[in-house]
């Protein structure tokens, strides 16, 4: 990478998250779900890194590892100069202040018995950043920032619409002025009309507050719109990582090509000529992934070597990384 370490806010190296499968009374380990299987990437200051992939490819798990909601099996996560994957559970709270998270489900991610104001104020209370009047002022300010009426502070989440609830979630994520926000599919549970509002809000906040996003989604068009760089994940591994425009104009990995070919084109003439690459077969189980390249059983370019060794994520120029030996 050309960028110096100063520009980086987070560096993830060889991150692995295996969930053990146990069976029987003695909880004997019989295998692992390899949700995230040795991935490395970095997030630069003030950028939006998109993370795309289909369901079960490990993108949400990656986000939760970064927040240390899961204890990674292996690898390091260097955030503001500290490897937070090694920080003991008791000390992790100090680092959580600099990280925010926006969840997918605006219905499930807010405590139904807490008022909206109290939910937004919680991070401030937990980190002892404000009390009393100052707390109330800050919460009011946060409500205004995300476009909510501060007079609705005493209402419970149930009384808000889906989009408003997601705004409460965003206000909570912003409360402690974090430098990094993990957006875990923040719009996929919303109506299309609300999606645009939330995307606009996130972009506006990024400009105003100088935020950095890790934007997890499965909607390629949305990711292209909001991201500076995009990482494509498949079965726990990063297949391709490059600038957003480069990825969409010049995809190199056969999986990325197949993914992009699935995006409908809003122009009916162009849409008629769109060539859809339909992948054969199903995504293999992360319990028992295929040897070598995880994608080779479904790849049209696969050769014998593809099943022999794991292709490294290599630079093919201009910060375009791809994990394929055939390109």
């Amino acid at each position: 990478m050309k960028t110096s370490t100063n520009d980086m806010i987070m560096e993830v190296k060889n991150l692995k998250m295996y969930f053990p499968i146990t069976r029987g009374l003695l909880r004997r380990k019989i295998g692992d779900v390899r949700a995230v299987d040795d991935i490395s990437f970095e997030i630069r200051k003030h950028e939006t890194l998109g993370l795309v992939g289909e369901s079960g490819c490990g993108k949400t798990t990656t986000g939760r590892c970064i927040l240390r909601l899961y204890q990674p099996t292996d690898g390091s996560i260097i955030f503001t100069g500290v490897d937070i994957s090694k920080v003991p559970e008791r000390k992790i709270i100090e680092h959580r202040r600099d990280m925010g998270v926006i969840f997918q489900d605006p219905f499930g991610s807010l405590n139904p018995r807490q008022s909206a104001g109290s939910i937004v104020g919680d991070p401030l209370k937990v980190h002892r950043m404000a009390t009393g009047k100052a707390l109330k002022d800050r919460v009011t300010e946060l409500f205004k920032i995300v476009g909510l009426d501060p007079s609705m502070m005493d209402r419970v989440p149930h009384e808000f619409s889906g989009g408003q609830r997601q705004r409460i979630g965003i206000a909570r994520a912003l409360a402690c002025n974090p430098s990094l926000i993990v957006c875990d599919e923040p719009i996929s549970a919303l109506d299309v009309s609300i999606q645009a509002q939330i995307i606009n809000l996130l972009e506006e906040l990024q400009q105003k507050l100088g935020l950095t996003y890790l934007f997890i989604a499965h909607d390629l068009a949305v990711v292209q719109h909001i991201s500076d760089r995009v990482a494509v994940m498949y079965l726990g591994r990063i297949m391709e990582l490059t600038d957003s425009s480069e990825l969409y104009e010049n995809p190199l990995h056969p999986y990325t090509k197949a993914l992009l070919s699935a995006i409908p084109i809003p122009d009916p003439v162009a849409e008629r000529t769109r060539m859809r690459i339909v992948l054969k077969g199903e995504v293999p189980s992360p319990v028992n992934p295929p040897p070598g390249c995880h994608f080779h059983p479904r790849c049209s370019l696969a050769i014998a070597e593809c099943s022999q060794m794991r292709p490294p994520l290599r630079d093919v120029g201009n910060g375009h990384y791809v994990a394929c030996i055939r390109v």
């Binding site: 927040l67 909601l69 959580r96 990280m99 991610s109 807010l110 018995r113 807490q114 919680d122």
Partner: peptide
């Protein structure tokens, strides 16, 4: 998810138990 959110916020186990789970 709000339990996950509470952990992400940095709440202690006791606080999560008493303010999030119990109510």
């Amino acid at each position: 998810d709000y339990i996950m959110a509470a952990r992400a916020v940095g709440m202690s186990n006791w606080r999560i138990m008493l303010t999030q789970i119990f109510p």
